[in-house]
Design a protein around this nucleic acid. Structure first.
Length: 781
RNA sequence: GCCGGAGUGGCGGAAUUGGUAUACGCGCGCGACUCAAAAUCGCGUCUCGCAAGGGAUGGAGGUUCAAGUCCUCUCUCCGGCACCA
């Protein structure tokens, strides 16, 4: 008997599929459509990772099943190719990032093809492709026109080592997400995107999408919606007021002091008394020192574990508690953030832990007053109920080379002028050095030939913006481009979007690491495009699921430096793509992290070998033709049902387990061609090559992947007889086989005749007999 | 600190959602085939016990005819957020 030669067979069918274009999606038609999406990979120099295979295989299975179920399927692929690793590699080697990208995408493409994914390669996209960059820049300009993109001098997170401004999201525990170095603050003019204008909708619309609950929670936590009151505290002998935000207006009688963020504008205003006001800060030197101290303090220290409260009183200033008219002191402290709420709080040490810590340290009064009704008191003291969000506007500027240039021209006369649409895309100039300049400007800033241009409005001398976009930009809309990737006039045609994005992407799977930022950013862009009536839905993704990470053997992270990475290429060479696919689906629950085990792969290969042997047997001319029996019919239909449901719920591990059980039985009992073919069909999405080969050996002319998904019959999955357990006092003592239609009283009569039962019951009184239909009988004595 | 998720054999993990715990796979042991090896096939593999039986799902209680599953307390691990008023 010939062994299964995976190398030959897999190569053969990959060539056939490519030639016959069976995975290419045609836009339009009357039938149902299905758009399955995976996060497009970043083509790193390390090549494809086993984690990519996990996510891609899962969606490959789902889309293959949909295709067999008669859907018109779109399962596209592309490259999220802008970004730091490529740029850093370019800095090190001097090779152009575009060249590095080309090399890497070539490797990735080849590797993905070697695993047999059913991608529509005719729709391949690349975020660094000028034809793609054009539309990324175009969308940015639409935002600019709607005042959603604006430039602002802002204190940014600055990584001195990467020489790059970081978004809040890229600072992890005070450290740079990229290099793990400390992050400091720096003032810089930055392009911002006003995502906060969409905060309410980004929160509310989560109600309408089918995301895993934990993903919704993460999104909501990040947006950080909270309802509270804005209340003004008058400053004694002054026109000025301190507006505070609180979610606990009901505790206002316990407010014994007020705290401002050190950056609060009122602080400098109160430095000197105006002509009408009498209030003035008397300890200005001290205040000034504190503000400076806080400003220079890196975020790391400010949010450090010990959290010792610091602050300074604004001496000479008193605020009036509007609820009881008491005079209370006013402080500045860095535990109050300038960027949230109103940058000022009323401190209620009786109810708030942080306020209490502060009060104890500075010996401020802690009083216990009765609580009142939040709404009532808010209105009574002239405040109002408001909603605040933790979400901040998105710092969109990067002082980097390998990103989309921000298509704006600075003109002394006209200000910020958008590059005219006909001049898009603004392409990156060729440079010699990719290192950011020492003052933090992008490497583009020293290419004067590129920077100096004319103003599109007044035709005078002007300069190009030298900041580039973050690599979140290209991934914020890529799923739209797949609908119509070659369009030169629009980012995608209405027709194509109405067809593929009618309800949004039908199913989007990706990593948990992208469920906050990428998801939020792309939802924001999509909503913006929806408001411009350029896309049919307000939400981009109808359904979002996530896969767990694959860890190295022993459950630690795979990392190149430790040397415990697994290269899928090696597994494909040794065991074949189908084995790799089946193994990664069988390895454990799809949504959980799992540890890789090279030792266990052999089990998946043995499973396929077994199918191969049966296939040989069935296909041989002298095969004994079996007539399918009733037992096997039931078994088969149950298995189809189970696989179908398991794929939909992404329980791929139990799907494979069921197939193993089925094939084990089949090997022992029956090999009818008809049933074996049905089995091949349900295995085909998991192991597309081996099933295709056997399928053709069995005389089928058309691809198994174009065959129809088998239907299971409700009537056929019911056995005539069932075996149920018999318990005495909750302990299983025996089991009986009964007809499926038997009545309750008959079962009870039957078990009382059972010898084993009689032994256990003995002379004891039977109190009750509980019969759960088709499951179990329990005799209570 | 807050919000999620999870603790089941030597290992990865199943369990129809309250109904026969340990399916399936890996590993290990024994046997068959073979000159031999590989591959394959068969049997066994939670634990105590010769057996009949008993005990086990991180730990302690509880509800129930029946608990891995529900409730209370508690321990451990993983992920996310973190001075957000």
């Amino acid at each position: 008997m010939k062994n299964y030669d995976h190398k030959k067979i897999e190569k053969k069918w990959q060539a056939v599929w490519e030639k016959s274009k069976i995975y290419e999606a045609k836009t339009g038609g009357k039938g149902k459509s299905f758009y399955g999406l995976i996060e497009f990979p970043y083509p790193s120099g390390a090549g494809l990772h086993v984690g990519h295979i996990r996510s891609n295989t899962a969606m490959d299975i789902i889309t293959r099943k949909r295709r067999m179920q008669g859907y018109n399927v779109l399962y596209p692929i592309g490259w999220d190719a802008f970004g730091l690793p490529t740029e850093n590699y370019a800095i090190k080697t001097g090779i152009q990032p575009a060249k590095v990208t080309k090399t890497n995408t070539d490797i990735f493409r080849k590797q993905l093809k070697s695993v047999g994914f059913g991608f529509d390669w005719s729709r391949e996209i690349n975020t660094t492709d000028p034809a793609y960059v054009k539309w990324t820049q175009w969308i940015f300009l639409q935002m600019f026109k709607k005042d959603l993109a604006y430039k602002k001098k802002t204190e940014i997170n600055w990584c001195p080592s990467c020489k790059i401004g970081l978004a809040n999201e890229e600072v992890v525990g005070g450290l740079c997400d990229r290099c793990d170095g400390p992050v400091v603050k720096k003032e810089k003019e930055q392009w911002m995107l006003a995502i906060t204008k969409y905060a309410d909708r980004l929160d509310k619309d989560l109600d309408d999408v089918n995301y895993l609950e934990k993903i919704k929670i993460q999104q909501r936590n990040w947006i950080g919606k909270s309802e509270g009151s804005e209340i003004e505290f008058k400053i004694k002998d002054s026109q000025d007021k301190i507006k505070v935000f609180t979610t606990r207006a009901d505790t206002i009688f316990g407010a014994t002091y007020v705290v401002l963020a050190p950056e609060h504008e009122l602080v400098t205003k109160l430095k000197s008394a105006s002509s009408v006001d009498g209030s003035q800060i008397s300890n200005w030197k001290e205040i000034e020192n504190y503000i400076k101290e806080v400003k220079d303090k890196p975020d790391m220290e400010r949010t450090a574990e010990d959290k010792v409260k610091t602050g300074v009183e604004l001496k000479g200033i008193k605020a009036i508690n509007p609820a009881n008219k008491e005079e209370i002191s006013v402080w500045i402290a860095d535990y109050v953030l300038a960027t949230y709420g109103t940058g000022a709080i009323m401190a209620v040490p009786q109810h708030d832990e942080r306020d209490r810590d502060f009060a104890i340290k500075f010996n401020l009064p802690i009083v216990d007053k009765p609580l009142v009704d939040t709404k009532e008191i808010t209105y009574k003291v002239g405040g109002k109920i408001v909603t605040k969000y933790k979400l901040r506007d998105w710092v969109f500027s990067r002082q980097r080379y390998w990103g989309e240039p921000i298509p704006i021209i600075h003109c002394e006369k006209c200000g910020y002028v958008p590059v005219p649409e006909k001049d898009l895309p603004v392409l990156l100039p060729k440079v010699k050095s990719y290192v950011p300049t020492d003052n933090g400007e992008s490497p583009l800033a020293i290419i004067s030939k590129w920077v100096n241009t004319t103003c599109p409005k007044c035709k005078g001398k002007a300069k190009r913006e030298t900041d580039t976009m973050p690599n979140w930009a290209g991934s914020s809309w890529y799923f739209l481009r797949y609908a119509d990737p070659k369009n030169k006039k629009e980012f995608a045609s209405k027709k194509a979007l109405n067809y593929w994005m009618k309800h949004g992407v039908d199913w989007y799977n990706g990593g948990m690491e992208h469920t906050t930022l990428h998801l939020l950013y792309s939802r924001f862009w999509h909503k913006f495009l929806y408001d411009l009536k350029l896309v049919p839905t307000s939400e981009p993704y109808m359904k979002r699921t996530s896969h767990g990470m694959i860890l190295a053997e022993g459950g630690v992270k795979m990392s190149k430096s430790i040397g415990n990475t697994v290269d899928p290429k090696d597994i494909v060479a040794l065991y074949g793509a189908d084995t790799l696919r089946v193994y990664e689906m069988f390895i454990g629950p799809f949504d959980q992290s799992v540890a890789w085990s090279t030792e266990s792969i052999i089990g998946s290969r043995r499973f396929l070998d077994k199918i191969w042997r049966i296939g040989q047997k069935v296909a041989s001319p002298d095969a004994f033709v079996q007539v399918p029996n009733k037992f096997f019919q039931t078994f088969l239909h149950k298995t189809i049902k189970k696989i179908e449901e398991d794929i939909e719920s992404m329980n791929f591990n139990t799907a494979i387990s069921s197939m193993m059980i089925f094939i084990n039985e089949m090997e022992k009992n029956e090999v009818s061609v008809k049933n074996f073919k049905i089995f091949l069909k349900i295995l085909a999405p998991f192991a597309p090559h081996i099933t295709e080969e056997i399928w053709s050996k069995l005389g089928e002319k058309q691809s198994i992947h174009k065959s129809s998904w088998p239907k299971w019959d409700k009537k056929k999955i019911i056995n005539d007889t069932i075996t149920i357990a018999v318990q005495v006092n909750g302990k299983v003592r025996t089991e009986i086989t009964i007809s499926k239609d038997i009545e309750d009283y008959e079962v009870k009569a039957l078990i009382l005749k059972d010898i084993k039962v009689l032994e256990w019951v003995g002379s004891m009184d039977i109190k009750r007999i509980i019969y759960v239909k088709g499951r179990i009988v329990n005799i209570v004595v």
